[in-house]
Each structure stands twice: as structure tokens, then as C-alpha cells.
Nucleic acid binder design. Sequence first.
RNA 1: GGCGGGGUAGCCAAGUGGUAAGGCCGCGGUCUGCAAAACCGCUAUUCGCGGGUUCGAUUCCCGCCUCCGCCUCCA
Length: 466
Amino acid sequence: MSIRFYNTYSRSVEEFIPIEGCRVRIYTCGPTVYSYAHIGNYRAYIFEDLLQRHLEARGFQVTRVMNITDVDDKTIRGSREAGLSLNDFTAKFKKSFFEDLDFLRIQRADQFPEATDPSNIGRMIEMIDELMTKDIAYQADDKSIYFRINRFPQYGRLAHLNLDELRPTSRVQSDEYEKEHIGDFALWKAWDEKDGQVAWDSPWGKGRPGWHLECSAMSTRLLGPEIDIHCGGVDNIFPHHEAEIAQSESATGHHFVRYWLHCAHLLVDGQKMSKSLGNFYTLRDVIEHGYTGREIRYALLRVNYRLPLNFTFDGMAEARQSLLRIDQWLERLQDLAGDATPEPAFPNADTFFVALDDDLNISAALAELYDRIRATNRAMDRVELTPGQAAALLEWWEGVNQILQLHRDIPSATPEVLALLADRAAARSEKNWTRSDELRYEIEKLGWTIKDTKAGQKLSKITANK
RNA sequence: GGCGGGGUAGCCAAGUGGUAAGGCCGCGGUCUGCAAAACCGCUAUUCGCGGGUUCGAUUCCCGCCUCCGCCUCCA
């Protein structure tokens, strides 16, 4: 069974065939560290996480790089306003970014190259030099170096844009110098007073790298001239990825990327997030509403990456309830399985993974999971499931969860809670219901709720919800 | 204006030229000292609108309405 992906370049679903056997090289556009990343950013990173985990589940050996943009207009402006050096300013957001990845159970990329790393700056200068030699890049009157898009006939093919129809928008006008073509983009930005201490020497004078070049330099340096998959948000298709193709292929002479995968936008309450609309959420904001990492992960994961995902707090509540269903099922299976030896694989154990093979069809994959949950719950109701079968299902879940990462956090109860719980068990064995209810109330005050089941009392942590 | 993605039950959301997965909510039942939870069952003659092709279309074609995004540095 083959894996298929929708390739933005061809605008069609294609069978995935890596360049080299079962090795897969992926480059993913990472954060610009000028503020805390928002949940839309994390939707993209969770999609990339799903991509990597599924490829690994299918036996591919994945090498993934994610860049950190730590120099650009926004980081420079932010550091100046904060009165900090660029490094001190971005350090804080780099740190929070990695904390967030862990919180959302996103697997770390193999490397997180930073734009300001000297080896990356070196590679960028090397590439510009190559482009200058080929006369594909030129230095304008403002001393910046630009890429001459007329020298790259395929420019616009990824985005399906016709260059003659590029319309100048307000965003362009503030950034215009002496470019030959309105679409020419900066490879190297000449130093400006506003840049303060932020500058590197280059053969063309003091300055800093253009944003697009960073990804081309890091991708080709760390993964080679041609990679299998390049991911990012749809908003990166133009001009960012278009520029990357132009620079990389012009500089190296190699085809750059086999499969372009783009993640659709996250909307909030049906609209694009924006600070002025008041619907802008960082991960921290959602956490403050009382949601856990896996709940947020589920909410951002459950819709196919190519569809716009509407984030709402109703959706968060739905995510919480859905996860509870999985938790309860696992608990039942564990109680039944005990330490039984798993029975041989059951039929159709592969359907979950087969669903993901189809361009990461997560909705269909989750439906397979829920179908299995319902079928086995029914079997358990009828006492038709053996401990060995339950153990096999738990083993199957391990594989599924290696991709989903939706297992419950098991918070440990304090000794105080455990002591009250023991007292309550004693009271219950004497059928002292009054005492039992008192103790339940005591335990609730400590943040835990109890369910009385045939197998005894079950503790669970009360999740805060503002 | 150009390019792209959508419109499927109250909400979220799969899917197929052959008669609608799954999740949440709701309702009914089981369980239960109580409670809560859980589990099981039920819940779209219908897939934005109008035509066309077809034995048959939600699925293909044409037109329209509507929502969202991109069109130079936002994932």
C-alpha cells in the first residue's frame, strides 16, 4: 500500500516515492521568534509532527530540519523596543517555543538551525555569491542584493501566479527601492540605521540576510540540494516558497523539492486570527482556559491539514469529551487484560494506518479508532472479549498512539488524597455511606473526583476550566 | 481582477457513479447506596441553489449563490 500526498506543485495527489530508498528528508518552515507563537503556528507544527510520525510508522527513516528565524524586521524592531540585544530578545521566545513543542507532544526535529548561526550566514553569502556570478542576482542602488526573477522562468509556477499580473499592494510600497522588477526579492538587505548593531559583513557591504534565502541555505546545507518534502503554511506558498525554489535551483542547479505540502489556515470563530479582532490566541492563552496539551493537540489535529480549521472553545470541549471516550476504553481494556499475553494480531489492525496513507486522512483514521472502540466495548459488555484480546488491543493502541500522542497524563495523587481514599474504601466496606460521601467531598476539595466502579474507586484529577 | 480551498444532521467532519463513516450535543436504556461517569442503542430519504449527462449523482459536466484564504517577507 502506497502513501499519497497532495503536492501543491502539481495540485494533485501523488504517490510518495522518496529520493533514496526508505530515507526521507523533510524541511519545515519554523517560527520567527519575535513573540509567543500562536495556535495557528502550532496547527502547522502538529501537522508536520503527524506527517513525520506516520512516515516513521510506515518504516521510513525521517530526517527533519526546522529553521528558527531569529533575524528579520520584526525581531529587530522588537529587540529595539525592548531595549535588548537581538540575541537576548529572541532567546526568550526560542525557549518558550521549545516548551510549547513539548507541551503539545510534538517530536523534535533533528536540527533547528538558526538564521544568525555563522555557518548559516556563511552558506547564505556563498549562495548569493553564486547567484551574483551567474548574474542572476544584482546589487541595487540601495546596496541590497536582489534576485532577478526574470532569470528564473518557472518563477510563479508553485503559486500559479502570472508575474505580469502581480498587483502592487500597500505592503509592497513601503519596501520599494530600485528594483528592476516589482517581483524581485531581497537576498541581502543592506544595513540600515534602524538595524542598530545587527549586521554582518559581506562582499557587498554590511547587512543582513533576506528572509527567503535563509531556508534555501539551511535546507541545502543540512539536507542536500534536493529534498523529499517541504512543508509550511499556505501563506508561505507565495512568495516565500516560490523564492526558495528560484534561489535554490538557480544556485545549485538541482531540482529542489519533490513534494510541497501546505497546511491550511487556522481560523478562530470563523475568521483569520488577528489582534485587532480580539481572536488572537497564543498557546499560553488556551492553556489559561484550563486545557491540557493533549486536548489542544487533539483539537488541532482532528481536521485534515488541507482544510481550514475553525478553532472555538466549543471545539475544545468536544476534544475533551472525545478523549474521555478513549481514556475510558483504555481503562476498561487494562482492567480486563491484567498481565495477559497478547493474542495474535486481530483482523484489520491496519485500517487506521491505511487511512493515514491517504494524504494523512486523520478524520477517517480516527473513525477507524472509534469504530474499534465501540466494537470492543460491545464485546466487553457481553463478556466476549478475552484478556489476551484486550492485551492485543492495548498493544495495537501503542502503535496508534505513537502517531496520535493522545494518551492521558496520569497525575499522581498526594499522600493526603491517598489516605482519604483508603479511609473511604474502609467506610464503604462497612456501608457507611454518610462517611463515604463526606470523604468524597474532602477529596474533591483537594482537586480529585471519584467514581465508584465494580473494580473499586477510581480517582481522576479535576481539570481546571475557566 | 487573478489564483486557490470550502458549503454534508444542532455543531465538528469522512466519503463514494449505486443509494450517507466517525466525534460532540440530544434522546432512550443498562449499570449504580447516592452521585457522577461509563457503556449500549437511536438520531440526515438527504449532501448550498438551478440545470445537464446517466438506469441511477451528494459524487461527473455547466451556470449561479455564498464563505474563507493568497496575490512580496503572516504557519
